[in-house]
């Protein structure tokens, strides 16, 4: 048997070979963060992507699949061309393509306490944005910051989300949209029905493989030097 020096504590979970898997939220967050980074997102945005995918997954929505779709569609396109531009009441792409839902969502939360994202001033128009279901966790965050629930309308339906993360409406229909123009509005709502329920929806084998392939781009291939540097300097058989 070959002996490779390795540490016994590793940074992340391996993926089961083949078949769908039941992943913990921790595993989904870690895998999606690495995949987003592997696809070229900056670390801070990749963290947002991991959290967003886990948030959706906790509510029974295929966040990892939606993220993989977006990362695949936008692979190696400079992030700057997917960033939003704001004009009064409207967030639109700075370039031709749809906005990155993670970058847009993070920006909406960053502006949550500023006029550009104030829901009290009326409707906000967002779009076109890629894989718009990925915006839901950020809109929940926006609602939390502004003490309001958020209603999301697009030609295919309506979803509402509140600051505690409860969700109602056509979220599954939104998940299927590759891209959309949304309007969002604040409203007072009680009793939205779907909250985090610690579901573990199975993550399909194609999604796992796709995310893993991207995640592996954050890793460094082995070299003699890297192997020599790890592990104990002495035998473990003592």
């Amino acid at each position: 048997m070959t002996i490779e020096p390795n540490d016994p504590t590793r940074s992340g979970p391996p993926l089961p070979a083949g078949g769908a898997a039941s992943l913990s939220q921790n595993e989904i967050r870690a895998l999606c963060l690495k995949a987003a980074r592997g696809a070229g997102m900056d670390w801070g945005i990749a963290e947002e992507a991991g959290s967003a995918a886990a948030w959706l997954s906790e509510r029974g929505l295929d966040g990892p699949g939606a993220l993989l779709d977006w990362l695949s569609a936008s692979d190696r396109i400079p992030a700057a061309s997917r960033r939003p531009e704001m004009t009064s009441g409207s967030w639109r792409p700075s370039d031709d393509g749809p906005m990155c839902p993670i970058t847009l969502g993070a920006a909406l939360c960053d502006f949550a306490d500023l006029p550009e994202a104030a829901l009290s001033r009326g409707l906000l128009r967002l779009g076109p944005v890629g894989r718009p279901v990925l915006l839901l966790p950020f809109l929940s965050g926006l609602g939390a910051a502004q003490g309001s629930a958020v209603r999301i309308d697009w030609p295919g339906g309506t979803v509402a989300v509140d600051g505690r993360g409860a969700l109602s409406g056509d979220a599954e229909a939104l998940r299927l949209e590759p891209e959309a123009v949304l309007t969002i509005a604040g409203f007072r709502a009680e009793g939205l029905d779907r909250t985090a329920c610690c579901l573990r929806p199975a993550v399909g084998p194609d999604t796992l493989r796709g995310l893993d392939d991207l995640a592996m781009r954050t890793t460094v291939p082995p070299s003699e030097a890297s192997r020599a540097g790890a592990g104990a300097a002495t035998s473990d058989n003592d």
């Binding site: 540490d7 590793r10 291939p221 890297s226 540097g229």
Partner: peptide, 13 residues
């Protein structure tokens, strides 16, 4: 960095 072969953190020069 994270090593490709074992997905473990390592320290390089």
């Amino acid at each position: 960095y994270v090593s490709e072969e074992k997905l473990e953190p390592r320290l390089g020069n």
